[in-house]
Write a protein that binds this DNA or RNA. Structure first.
Lengths: 350, 350
DNA sequence: CGACTCCGGTGTAACGATGCACCGACCATA
DNA sequence: TATGGTCGGTGCATCGTTACACCGGAGTCG
C-alpha cells in the first residue's frame, strides 16, 4: 500500500516537495548533483510511486490511452490490444479497453467518456465510415489515431490514420495467384469496412489486369450495409454462403480471395462441402494473418499485417509531441503488408 | 472537453456543491424531491460528468479495475476481456488491460503498479501456481479474483477464485466419448496450468472408469515445466507432436481428448498428417470452446466455459462489498461447463 | 416559553502533485 | 559598499470532489 507521498520523500531527503517534484519531472537543470542523488536514493528506499490521480488532477493529463475496438474477443483486435499495450508500457502508459461491439452509439459514448475523463489519446477502430462524431474533441486537442482505416477527404485534420497498405496487399495476393497459374479467380467480401475492401480489391484487380486476366467474379454480401451488428463469426458464414454460390455457378473459379481470414475460413468450409479439397482443387486466400490462419487446416495463405509495428506506430503518434511541422491535414501511416504463402493455395488442377 | 465542474452545477441549480455531491453519491435521504429534480435536470442540461481523477484523489478508489492476462491476443483471454469490460461498464467501471506475456516478473510488477495507482480490484489470470506474491496487497484491502484457477490450500484468505468446474468438464467429455463407443482413448496435455489439467483429467478418468475402461494413455509435454514462456501457438504444436507419437504407437487410440482447444487443433493436424480423417477415423475433442472451435474444420467438439457468466461473476466479486458474512478463507466460484458436440467426434470406425 | 429534535441542507478542510513566482546567499563588478 | 546576476532551491495556490461537522429554522413536548 503505497501511502508514501511526495511529502514523505521530501522530509526524508531534507528538501522541499518542489524539489522532489522538479526531479520527477526532469527539471533538473538547477540542481546540485548531490541533492539529486540524495532525493533519488530516498525515492528508491521508500519505494515511492507518484499518485496518478493527483498528478492527473493537477496536470489534466492522465498516463492512460484509450483503445476502442469492436470486440477484443476477435483475435485481430486482440492482437492489436496486446501490442498496443506493450508499446504504451515502454513509456509508462496504461491502456483502457473499450469494446464498442460495433455499436456506433457505444463508440461515440466511449470517446466522450474517455475525453471527459481527461484522456488525451485514443486509438479508435471505428466501424463508422465518417469520423465527424469525434470532430469536437479533436478540435479541443484530443489526439486520435484511426486504426485499420485509410484517410478520407473529409477527415478532420490532426487525425492520424494507421493502416496496412491494402492496395499493395491485394496486389501481392493477385500476383501470387496469377503466378500459380490461376485464370478464373473470384473475390469475396462483406459490405462493411468498405474502404478496406475496395482497396484490397483494386490492388487485386491491378495484378490480374497486368497478367491479362479478365475481371474476376466479385461476390459481396447481399445483405444491407445498414446491418451494423455484423460480427466476426458472421464473416465466416458470409464466406461460406458466397463461395457456395460461386461454386454452384456455370464457370466456377479455381481460386477465391477473401477480404479477410475469417471470411476465407468460411470459404474453405463451402469448398469442402462442395466436395473439393482446399489447395489442390480450389485455392483459397485470406487477409490479415490472424493466429487462426496458421492454425487452420489447411494452413491459410494470407497477407500479413505487421501488427506489432502498426501498434507501436499508433502509440507513437499519440504520444509524441508530433513531428513538429507535420503536413497539415490528415496524415496516414501505411504499412507494407507481407504475403504469407501456406497450404491453402496451389496451382490449379489439370 | 467537459470543463464543467460540480461547482458550475451547484451555481446553476442554486445549491451548494455538497448537495450536488450528495446526490451524486446516493445520499438522497435528507433531500427534498424538488431539490433533487432540480439538480438532476441541471446536471443533464449542462452535460456534467464527474472528474474521475478528482474523485479518486478524494476517495482513494478509482472507478477502474485491472485485468492481468497472459496475452489478450489469445482468443480465450480476449473473450474474458470482452465480457469483463461489458460487466464493468454496467457499473461505470473501466478496465485497464495488462498483458503479462506469461512472465512472472511482469505479472508481479503489474499488480504492484495497479495497487500503487490506487486500484482496488484486479482480475488476475496468473500463470503462477502460488499467489503469495500478492499477499501483501491483499492484506491491505486489495480485492483479487483469480480467474481460471481453483483454490489452493495455501491461498491467501479474501481471495476469490473463479473457474469452470474442470472436473465435471472432463467427466462430460469422458461420458460423451464413451457413449460414442470409444474404448481406447488418450489424453493430451501440456505441463502448464497444472491444476486445471489435473482436474480435467481426473473427471475424464472418472467417466472412463465408470464405463469399465482401462486407464487411457496420457501424453504430456515432455519439456520442462520451467518453460514459462510456453505460449499459445505452441500449445497447438504440442498437440501435434503428442498425437503423432500416439498414432505411431502399437495400439493407437480411437479418440483423443486434448486439455484445451488450441492443443486439440494441433492434434487434428497430426491426425490428418497420419492419413486419418478427424471424426470418422479418429475423434478429437478440446476444452474451452474458443471462437476457433466453431470455425475450425471440422468443427470441434469441446467443453464450453460460460465465459460471460464467469466474467460477470468475477466483476461482481470485485465490486460488491462482499456477501456480508462470507465464509472465511478462500472462496471459489465454480461454473458448470457445457458439452458442445460438433463434428470432430464420432463413433469409432468399424 | 424554553429545551429538544428533526429536517434540509451548507462550509470547508483535506486528497497528492505541480510549477510559477519567489527568495536568500554568494560572487563579480563598478 | 551598493548593484546586479546566478545558483539552488522553496512557498503555496490550485486542480475537482468528497464527507464530516455544523447550522438555522420549524415543529414538538412538558
Amino acid at each position: 500500500m503505497a501511502g508514501i507521498t511526495i511529502l514523505d520523500v521530501a522530509r526524508a531527503a531534507g528538501v522541499s516537495t518542489s524539489t522532489v517534484s522538479n526531479l520527477l519531472n526532469g527539471r533538473t537543470g538547477r540542481m546540485l548533483p548531490e541533492t539529486r542523488e540524495r532525493v533519488e536514493s530516498t525515492i528508491r528506499e521508500l519505494g515511492y510511486r507518484p499518485n496518478r490521480a493527483a498528478r492527473q488532477l493537477r496536470t489534466g493529463k492522465p498516463q492512460v490511452i484509450g483503445l476502442v475496438v469492436p470486440s477484443v474477443g476477435n483475435p485481430y483486435w486482440g492482437a492489436l490490444a496486446r501490442h498496443l499495450e506493450a508499446a504504451a508500457l515502454t513509456e509508462g502508459y496504461h491502456v483502457l479497453l473499450c469494446n464498442s461491439e460495433r455499436d456506433p452509439d457505444r463508440e461515440r459514448q466511449y470517446v466522450d467518456e474517455l475525453v471527459s475523463d481527461g484522456i488525451r489519446g485514443i486509438v479508435l477502430c471505428s466501424s463508422l465510415p465518417s469520423l465527424e462524431h469525434v470532430a469536437g474533441p479533436l478540435e479541443d486537442g484530443l489526439r486520435l489515431v484511426a486504426f485499420d482505416r485509410t484517410a478520407q477527404a473529409d477527415d478532420p485534420s490532426s487525425l492520424v490514420n494507421v493502416s496496412v497498405d491494402n492496395s499493395i496487399g491485394g496486389e501481392l495476393m493477385g500476383d501470387h495467384l496469377v503466378g500459380l497459374g490461376h485464370r478464373r479467380v473470384a473475390f469475396v467480401s462483406g459490405a462493411i469496412r468498405s474502404v478496406n475492401r475496395t482497396e484490397r480489391f483494386q490492388g487485386f484487380l491491378r495484378a490480374l489486369e497486368r497478367a491479362g486476366i479478365a475481371r474476376p467474379d466479385v461476390v459481396t454480401w447481399p445483405g444491407s450495409s445498414a446491418d451494423s451488428t455484423f460480427g466476426d463469426v458472421e464473416a465466416a458464414e458470409l464466406g461460406r454462403v458466397a463461395a457456395t454460390e460461386l461454386l454452384a455457378g456455370p464457370n466456377p473459379p479455381s481460386a477465391i480471395f477473401a477480404v479477410n481470414d475469417m471470411t476465407a475460413i468460411g470459404v474453405c468450409r463451402a469448398v469442402r462441402d462442395a466436395g473439393f479439397e482446399v489447395g489442390p482443387d480450389i485455392s483459397v486466400a485470406g487477409f490479415d494473418d490472424i493466429v487462426l490462419a496458421e492454425l487452420y487446416s489447411p494452413r491459410l495463405t494470407t497477407v500479413r499485417q505487421p501488427m506489432k509495428e502498426m501498434a507501436t506506430a499508433a502509440f507513437q503518434a499519440l504520444h509524441d509531441p508530433g513531428d513538429g511541422d507535420r503536413l497539415p491535414g490528415a496524415t496516414s501511416l501505411l504499412f507494407r503488408p507481407e504475403l504469407v504463402v501456406r497450404d491453402s493455395t496451389a496451382p490449379p488442377p489439370g
